[in-house]
Design a protein around this nucleic acid. Sequence first.
RNA 1: UGGGGUAUAGCCAAGCGGUAAGGCACUAGACUUUGACUCUAGCAUCUCCCUGGUUCGAAUCCAGGUACCCCAG
Length: 364
Amino acid sequence: MVGLSGGVDSAVAAYLLKQAGHEVIAAYMRNWDSLANNDFLGNPYQGPLCPQEADYEDAKKVAEKLGIPLFRVDFIEEYWNDVFLYFIKEYQSGRTPNPDVFCNKYIKFDAFWKFALTHQVDYMATGHYARYENGELRKARDLTKDQSYFLSLLTHEQLSRTLFPLGNLLKKEVRQIASSIGLNVANKKDSTGICFIGERHFRQFLQNYIPAQPGEIIDIERHEVVGQHYGVMYYTLGQRKGLGIGGIKNHQKGSWFVVGKNIEKQELYVVQGDESEWLYHECATITSFQWLGNFKLEVGQTYGVKFRYRQPDIPIKVIEVLSNSIVVESFYPVRAITPGQIAVLYQDEVCVGAGIIDSVAKKG
RNA sequence: UGGGGUAUAGCCAAGCGGUAAGGCACUAGACUUUGACUCUAGCAUCUCCCUGGUUCGAAUCCAGGUACCCCAG
């Protein structure tokens, strides 16, 4: 069973599986209901035109074109309970979660799989750009579209029952295939924003679930108030936009960036200029760490790590291994390593482990 | 109510007679299956606190007014 989103990637994935001789069925998932979920503020799609229904129509056309049956399934409650509540809780505690990683873990590769099982399938498949070969999760051939980052918290069991038909293709090739077989979505723009929710004005979106709590923005170097914020939970480390801090007398030119926050005091800490020491760290404690490698994880080993999606691999050394967490140290300062985000360890192309960034520190 | 200083876009700020730099913020777009970062573009055209005056021409000079700041009382 293939998860058809209405986009070009999953459509081509389904096509390729069918071409390969698999018996393919598909399902369109809908996991977010703006009305039921009070998704009002910051939602650009007010009114009757619902992008999800447009996507469903696209998926139907794709299924029809490919001659495969298309089911429709909702995991709105599961998404809310397993992904969104966690998402909100993290923001409330001042962290910056990555909901899509958990959406994969609990919805796409769990709830969806259970649904697929009711149709007696052997495998599920998605349009992710990633590879799972010989028990190893690997980056996609198209490194610019590689999505192994988002799959890094899956288990071997989840990965081994999944096919990734796009793992060895370039995005460009996927679009060419879609075009060559006349798929309606061949030139459809890639979707962005939180999976199943979509593009939102983020601060306003959060305000639907976390009430505003305005407070002071403080220059952490001079201990001066330089502005007012809407609520510390709406900002993330390294953030520039949305601070609204203009020119200030006797200050140099330059933008301001978030470097910290105090939930209790509702204070947001910032620095001017993107070269401030406050923005950079080398050490990170990674909790809920899951090891995917087929050898032993030990102190002293070096890997490449992504502290956020699409970040080039950063060389790090493992300096501590605990039962459920590890501590790593990069060989050079890294900007805005952010608690709540997922840190993924790679050994070249192989994803060997991942966990949640819990805290960061300067070297030494 | 003596003296001095400043008044330029939301903020900081160039310009000192020749027809409004720059930065920040903001907005839009690009990038992006999280949030960010980044990049590109836009952003004072009866306008430079107000009113007169000098001049071919003023934000720039002069006079008066208004507001705020500082030092003295």
